[in-house]
Design a protein around this nucleic acid. Structure first.
Lengths: 212, 212, 212, 212
DNA sequence: TATGAATGAGAATTCATTCAT
DNA sequence: TATGAATGAATTCTCATTCAT
């Protein structure tokens, strides 16, 4: 397996396109990459197919993404950014939200992401850690965001408590994401409502203090 | 063109060992297969490594498991059975369990499975459906079990309600399983307790009727 | 599970070389493929040997011919074209040929093909139909050509009669091709002349009407 | 590829079954072998499938036929015998047969063989000579028979002439055999009649002397 | 003797990545 | 710069044949 020629320690980076054409190309590659990975998983997705689906020549693909991992990382970063922005918005409105609304917001966040990305994110999170530095950072980052949001809403929460709660809420968010997969036929709309309700009940039991 | 020798339409099956020697071999292969898949994921696991770790020659491995998917299916079936038995035991004691105990039992079930299997099951569930018929049957089967257990405990539940609740509980069980992965460093013991508590609260809010 | 990368339903095709280098490579592969298949038969011929004989790395071979069958089909198509051209030439001169000359032309056509191709064609025609769509089309195509030629020469022939005669003539052509195989030691030159003579006698008995 | 353990020069032979049971077994194996080889060709036919189709355990199969080639040779010998007997019968009646009847007899001989054997014989004759000593002997043997038959019918034929004619007739017989393959859809009954007629015409032109 | 199991040298095919034009 | 071509180690799977119980 040929490895990217680079001095040891040098981490290959995605090349940032300068011209308009290049930006379109990168966007197309990212989209195709997401689609192929969503369908087949990271390992089974081939650079050749990603190139073909984005009408990119394989040589060009490698000019923008020097290897497969860089492409995966770019995809992760892409969704990362979406999550980041969503939380910023949430935090700006946190004081005016009821606990129920907060619960709903968090779960919807994942659904929205999935609408845009399909199961891509899930697939990317399956990559064994050995293969990807970025993998894992994503979950950690969301976790931190949730901790911050919870603390903003309920300043009296201890750090540990907030951390533990955030893990549970992240779990619920992932469950919600899994529900969004079309493949899962067994999930009726009622189940989504149950998950919402469980999250609301849980948050209410933990965040009793109302914002002033 | 490698393809399992069989008349068209015939689905390749794991060969059941007849002699003592073969049984030992199959057991060793299953164990090694679980380990390798747990470490690297289904795609990255190679038949050669599974053979080596079980001190089996590659030809012998293929005698019993005519292809990689059959091996994966055998592994799935293996855990399937464990779950099956655990639920049967649960159901036999269902009337004497408090709601909290029921919640704990369900979550522990996954933890126990993971103690025996490591992340193998999780890895196997990552296999894209295109590759495996069995994949997905597993989740569906657990779902059915939960539905049955809930209905036994609370006969007044409508079928739909039980179905929806089961999906949510299955989600919590999967979250718990994820917590069991050593890799996930961010999960403190407190988080596990939070997940338990959320499940208890949820079940209590839904299964009000007490057993006599 | 090795399988040509392509969306399901897509039939793998030989890649057409764009650059000079690729064209030379493909020509060399075709030549080596013909030689190896001629020597050992389709099944026993290995892609590795074909690669080696054409001084091609195995990966490059597969770039142009995504699997063994595609290579065989390409070879078939190659000879197909030769036959096509020969018949076109024959038809352009059909009015000026005596029946004997027509018979000779047809038989020689196969001999010429064999001089260029050795027993490759014969070997390719041995491929079980299950393995090759193209196989069989070749014979059918020659058959059609003979029908057309006969009808041109003797317009009064009914369609059915022409079809039946063409099958017999094709049989004689194949017999002639078999004679060309050096391996068959039992065939003396006299036998070739006998086959020619039988074909002449037969055609004369069927195509009595002379062209005006 | 493990090779049969035997002292150099020792040719492995089919074991002749002693008991009734063994004879039935051998017959079943031969039948299954013929079927599988007919379908897939010699190379692609596997000993395992032949064993399975004849409900024989692989170990037992090898007790009767110590390797694949021996099995093929046994199959060849089997048909060989049939041809042998047919020619003996023909020769005993040769003086009373018209030339047309002689032609018909020869062609029918192949058709009959094919009815019993399907394309097996054809497949066996495709085996590259390197792999089989027996291969080729079969054709030669039929050739000799034809020579003898022709000479009996027309004692004035020179040896060379008889040899050459026999080659051509054998060609016609093989063509007729090819016609018998169900796969070949393009062959209408009329074509068979044409082939018969061509053979009759040919023989008549060569064997003018009538039997007294 | 019957037969399930063992063997291992190959065969086909893949694919990330590099490079020359 | 764009892109077709080159590379080759790695992977899955096969199957004739042998052997131990």
């Amino acid at each position: 397996m040929p490895s990217t020629m680079s001095r040891p320690g040098e981490v290959p980076q995605a090349r940032i396109p300068q011209r308009r054409n290049g930006k379109l190309r990168v966007a197309a590659i990212l989209k195709a990459g997401a689609a192929v990975i969503a369908e087949k998983g990271y390992e089974a997705a081939t650079m050749a197919e990603i190139a073909a689906r984005s009408s990119t020549k394989i040589g060009s693909l490698y000019r923008f993404f020097p290897n497969k991992e860089v492409l995966a990382n770019a995809l992760i970063a892409h969704y990362h950014e979406g999550v980041h922005n969503a939380f910023d918005e949430l935090d700006s409105r946190i004081q005016s939200l009821s606990i129920s609304a907060l619960a709903d917001f968090l779960l919807d966040l994942m659904v929205d992401l999935h609408k845009g990305a399909g199961p891509t994110m899930k697939r990317l999170l399956e990559i064994p850690e050995v293969l990807s530095v970025k993998r894992g950072e994503f979950s950690k980052s969301i976790h931190k965001h949730i901790v911050r949001t919870l603390t903003l809403r309920s300043p009296s929460l201890t750090a540990n408590k907030a951390q533990d709660m955030a893990v549970v809420i992240l779990g619920n968010m992932k469950t919600m994401a899994a529900f969004s997969d079309a493949a899962d036929q067994s999930v009726r709309p009622g189940a989504i409502e149950e998950l919402r309700e469980m999250t609301r009940i849980y948050l209410k039991s933990r965040l009793k203090t109302k914002p002033v």
